[in-house]
Amino acid sequence: MPTPEEFRALLEDDFGVSEWSEKQPPLIEAVDHHRLAEVLKERGYTLYVFVVASHRPGVEGAEDALTAAGYIELATGLRSPTENSQLAIWRVRVGLDEQLATLVDLFAGADWQEREQFDLVGVRFAGHPDPRRLMLPEDWEGHPLRRDYAINTPHPPWR
């Protein structure tokens, strides 16, 4: 049965996570995203729960190149369907022009969830088998949940 201690030890030993906080899930390198999901699935986290992307616009004069250019932060959650229902959440950061490896080959549910995050936030997934919008019409321009998308942006006539 997976435990929080085991999850913490895995991230510290194999994925170089040193900072832990109550209010922030652990942050790993984007290249390790798929590998961590694979390891967790083998260890019993077989229930795909969610993926959530949030856009962070660029900050002028920031020292870190990613912060200066703006990035998308992506949190993923997996659950173990066992007695303690252990939940594993981790975050990755990807640049606005970069792609992140898809999890569809591990979790079939990632298909629609990643399509939704592409649709609304504009994060791109490499190797996704069906990279279409999910919620909005195919001819919609822009990604509504980005910070630079005003809530009163005019939308095309409803069909």
Binding site: L47, P81, F107, A108, G109
Partner: peptide
């Protein structure tokens, strides 16, 4: 069962 878990069905 396996498909239900993978799809995130609860």
């Amino acid at each position: 069962k396996e498909l239900a878990l993978e799809l995130g069905i609860t």
